[in-house]
Amino acid sequence: MIQVSVCGPREATQQDLANAREIGRLLAERGAAVICGGYSGVMNAVAEGSASAGGLVIGILSQHTKTDSNPHLTVAIPTGIGEARNAIIALAGDAVIVVGGSWGTLSELALARRRGATVVQIGGWRISDSSGKPVSGVIYADTPEDVIDRTGLFA
């Protein structure tokens, strides 16, 4: 089974939430498991979208318990390791999708790129070097359908 990690902030824009929900639905329709942080915001929206289409959703939780995890998870994995769980999320996906932006989301993007994973981003921050040139390795997309296509997992 294809596994796709979807990362995004707890406090997200309405557009980011809509994109995440649609990305979750599209991934489920293609038979992919969604891996996310398991709480609110983009994590809840992608889980909701996937669950609505019968998809498998795995939440890697920062806390010691399943308390406060979102109701759309198929599997909730409490880790008790706080933000360090971002490394698990970044490593678990065959590709990583970034929706929107926050510091935690940026850490997941960086960890995924560090390991050489395909990272596709919609919305959020655009990362550039000191000369203003976009950092290589992040693929930018404009629509949820484009995000799915650019992962290269569903040819």
Rank of each mutant, 00 (worst) to 15 (best):
V119H: 09
N70F: 06
A45F: 04
A47C: 13
C36H: 11
V119G: 05
M43E: 02
I35D: 08
D16Y: 02
R25W: 05
D146T: 10
L111I: 12
T13H: 07
W103T: 14
H64G: 04
S130V: 06
G49E: 02
R126H: 12
A90N: 05
P9A: 15
Y39L: 14
E83W: 08
V4I: 15
L153P: 12
D129K: 05
Q15R: 14
E11K: 14
G152P: 06
S62M: 13
G123Q: 06
R25E: 14
V119C: 12
E29H: 02
R150A: 08
E108W: 01
A76P: 10
D142W: 00
T118S: 08
I89P: 07
L153R: 09
T79L: 13
A112N: 04
S130T: 10
I97M: 07
A47H: 08
G54F: 06
Y140R: 13
T74V: 09
S136V: 13
G24H: 07
L26C: 01
A47W: 07
T74D: 12
S130G: 11
A51K: 13
S52V: 09
T105V: 09
V135C: 13
A53L: 05
A12S: 14
E29D: 11
Q3K: 14
G24N: 11
N86Y: 04
S50Y: 00
V138K: 09
S131F: 06
R126Y: 00
L109G: 00
S52L: 11
A45S: 13
V147F: 09
G24Q: 09
G41L: 02
L73W: 02
I88V: 14
D149K: 15
R10C: 02
G124F: 00
V57L: 10
P134M: 10
S50P: 04
P144A: 07
V120S: 07
D146E: 15
V34M: 10
T74A: 12
I81C: 11
V147W: 07
S107E: 10
E83G: 01
I81S: 08
G100F: 01
S69K: 11
I58N: 03
T151Q: 12
G101F: 02
G24M: 10
S5K: 01
W103Y: 15
I77M: 13
M43Q: 12
H64T: 12
G104K: 07
S136L: 12
S50K: 05
G82W: 05
A141I: 06
H72G: 03
R126K: 15
G137W: 10
V96N: 03
I127G: 03
I97E: 01
Q121S: 15
A32K: 04
V75N: 01
P9I: 01
A32V: 10
M1Y: 09
A117F: 03
V120K: 11
